[in-house]
């Protein structure tokens, strides 16, 4: 492993920033998120930012192509996408798993989303192993290993040793980035890693998808739907929610085709062209969101579309709590 004194972190990041843009967790005007690194920036190394890193790969707004209408002709111009590499720093294991979930959707064997895949290709991800646990964290219950970042997305694992960081490259790409600041790093074998604290919130999830497959008409949904505001806080802060909408933006002859995040909690979601709304109310929307995360996605990919980061538990204005839902389903006899 390669050791960096914490006091040298800023020098380290500056050195990397000479080679490529570096993205770090920080507070921007009162909202914690991943943002481009600048010298002397205060980094958020405790916990995780309110806004997850999914926007790095699936931006909330993204132009797909330009078009121009001239008479009966339509000209289409591809967007120039970022081609140069970048490094994404200090992603917690839950959020790393979130990226693996997105990969399943956007880089599936059936279809590869070019823009998403490009961003994944150019981004080296430094995971940060947890040295604490918030009361809202339940990653271990959702199949996330707090000891080891999912190597399907992480390129370097970072261990917080107190006064030092230990870096462990998980692949060649990670090694290459680390070599850019080799002079600040010292090699050390037999690094003693601090223990990862137990998650305070632990749920039983074994057999959950099977159990849920019989709950579609169960009364449990009524208890959870009543207080929902129908806002997009849960879906937009979620590291795995990935629904999007395609829009046109027109200015005279010029147009832009945009992909924007969408939320299954919104009224307009699933609204059909003829005006029919198959998901009529809060109950149907919440049911879809929970079942997508805990049953449908699992059936397709053998992993949950919830990584237990706990953002929705603390940020839902009405405290709709997916962990409580899981506990209640597991407790109850299938109805």
């Amino acid at each position: 492993m390669q050791i960096l004194e914490k006091s040298k972190l800023d020098d380290f990041l500056q050195m990397l920033a000479k080679h490529q843009p570096v993205i770090v967790p920080t507070d921007v005007d009162g909202l914690s998120q991943y943002a481009p690194y600048q010298a002397q920036m205060t980094l958020l190394l405790d916990g995780k930012p309110t806004v997850s890193p999914k926007g790095i790969f699936l931006p909330q707004t993204e132009a797909i192509y330009r078009f121009k209408a001239q008479g009966k002709n339509l000209l289409i111009a591809e967007m120039e996408n970022q081609q140069t590499p970048q490094v994404l720093f200090f992603v917690r294991h839950c959020d790393v798993q979130g990226i693996v979930c997105l990969d399943k959707v956007f880089m599936s064997p059936e279809y590869t989303d070019q823009q998403y895949a490009k961003k994944r290709e150019i981004t080296t991800i430094f995971a940060l192993r947890c040295n604490g646990s918030k009361e809202s964290c339940f990653c271990t219950s959702m199949g996330v290993d707090p000891e080891k970042a999912n190597p399907a997305a992480a390129d370097v694992e970072v261990y917080d040793l107190g006064d030092q960081f230990a870096f462990e490259a998980l692949n060649e790409r990670g090694e290459k980035v680390l070599s850019q600041a080799a002079e600040l790093l010292s090699n050390q074998d037999n690094v003693i890693l601090p223990p990862v604290p137990e998650r305070k919130l632990q749920l039983k999830t074994e057999g959950l998808p099977e159990k849920l497959s019989t709950t579609f008409d169960a009364p449990i949904w009524n208890d959870f739907m009543f207080k929902c505001l129908g806002c997009g806080t849960c879906t937009y802060l979620c590291p795995t929610c990935h629904c999007f909408d395609i829009n046109n933006k027109l200015r005279g002859e010029d147009g832009l085709k945009l992909r924007t995040w969408d939320s299954c909690m919104f009224d307009e979601y699933t609204l059909m062209a003829g005006g029919h709304q198959p998901r009529t109310g809060k109950k149907e929307r919440i049911r879809n969101r929970f079942l997508h995360k805990l049953q449908y996605f699992y059936e397709k990919h053998q992993m949950f579309l919830c990584v237990g980061c706990g953002r929705c538990l603390t940020k839902c204005p009405m405290n709709i709590d997916i962990s409580k839902f899981v506990q209640q389903v597991m407790k109850e006899e299938s109805r």
Partner: peptide, 10 residues
Amino acid sequence: KCIRCYACRN
């Protein structure tokens, strides 16, 4: 900073 979740409106 607004993420357009519309919680304020709702």
